[in-house]
Design a protein around this nucleic acid. Structure first.
Lengths: 216, 216
DNA sequence: TTGTTGATTTCGCAA
DNA sequence: TTGCGAAGTCAACAA
């Protein structure tokens, strides 16, 4: 961890210049280098491993295989310390889309009374549909699950429906977009495409799910 | 800047837990808080301003307006230092999409012989089309520019074309997707929609451009 | 304030 | 390795 007055030049996927100012240079154990200012959550410049750092005099040269280069010109070092953090057990996440899909696969009657699951991750040639279900009339429904449904989620489901309806064994298949939140524009476009929007309640799904006895 | 053995719990847009380990806690002047381990380029946990940090004993509680909460339980502080970095002049970038658009607007004959520019950032009710050109036959062409064209770029241009072709003064307008790189799926979908893909060479564009004499 | 779009996005998963 | 979709995406910019 070095705090220094420095200027930085990056050439690679684009060209960028960082004028002389005081910043934090962080070199991690895995080779990651980050250059942070005193505001904002993202570093101004960085380099991801694998990369090589060569320090000569007051010039740091960081390069990687792809030919990207970070030149750090050090004007003055204000702080320099090193710390051994050891390995990190990592972050445990809960509540993401995958989890929603698992819960809904188990309880697709949340989408409609008497609905049943035909298949999870039903493959098409442009990617898998989250759920393929049978509704109360026996008709097939393709379900796309999002945490927050936006316009591109509607586009995605539309593409799936086009593809899936080319299969005479499956067609006709209608679409359901299931999400915790919807942007107004997603609702409008979905309505326009004949796609039904279903709002999910994560806590309710999670609360209901354990009460379902598994018959393995 | 604090280096400490700590565990972290985040509740907000999702729930996440970070088991006890040694990490870097960074508190920036603008209120940003970052929790970094010794590997990876992004922090495991963070909170963006505006947020409030309350330190009581060995517990840090960080909250924001949206009801998100970060609980940091400090086990042992290994390092604690503070540094005044001052304001940063910020990063100067070159070579991003906006720049490509400027270059192409000046040299749209790169897209086809005798092509001319009608308008840059042509407005539609769902957003501006990057370029509106006239091809060698006098027909109008809507051009969408990307650094890397993916499937959603094709969707975006498709929406623009639908809108723009509703205007009897402009229709018919065909589409060109110009990018430095294309994903295979973008090419397939573009072909499917009758959209032409044009590969751009940034160095060539930049190299050619200064040779164009300006008439004042 | 809200919405849209780009990003040296990063990250994870799967083919 | 490559491709593709998700992300607590972040951040800039316009309406």
């Amino acid at each position: 961890m070095v705090i220094a007055r420095c200027s930085v030049d990056y050439t690679g996927r684009l060209s960028a210049h960082l004028p002389l100012a005081t910043r934090l240079l962080m070199v991690k154990a895995d080779g990651t280098l980050l250059i942070h200012s005193d505001s904002g959550s993202k570093p101004f410049n960085w380099m991801s491993p694998p990369c090589s750092l060569v320090e000569s005099d007051m010039l740091w040269r960081v390069t990687n295989k792809a030919g990207e280069e970070l030149l750090i010109t050090i004007d003055e070092v204000l702080h320099d310390s090193s710390h051994d953090l050891g390995v990190d057990p990592g972050l445990q996440k809960d509540g993401v889309e995958k989890h929603l899909q698992e819960l809904l696969a188990d309880r697709c009657e949340v989408l409609g009374a008497s609905w049943s699951l035909i298949r999870r991750e039903h493959p098409t040639d442009i990617g898998p549909v989250d759920l393929l279900c049978r509704d109360e009339t026996g008709a097939r429904v393709a379900v796309e699950i999002k945490r927050r449904a936006e316009i591109d989620g509607v586009e995605q489901l539309t593409r799936y429906l086009q593809r899936i309806n080319l299969d005479p064994w499956l067609a006709p298949v209608r679409g359901v977009l299931a999400a915790q939140q919807f942007t107004p524009q997603a609702r409008v476009l979905a309505a326009d495409r004949g796609i039904t929007c279903v709002t999910l309640d994560y806590d309710e799904l999670r609360g209901i799910e354990p009460s379902t006895p598994r018959l393995f």
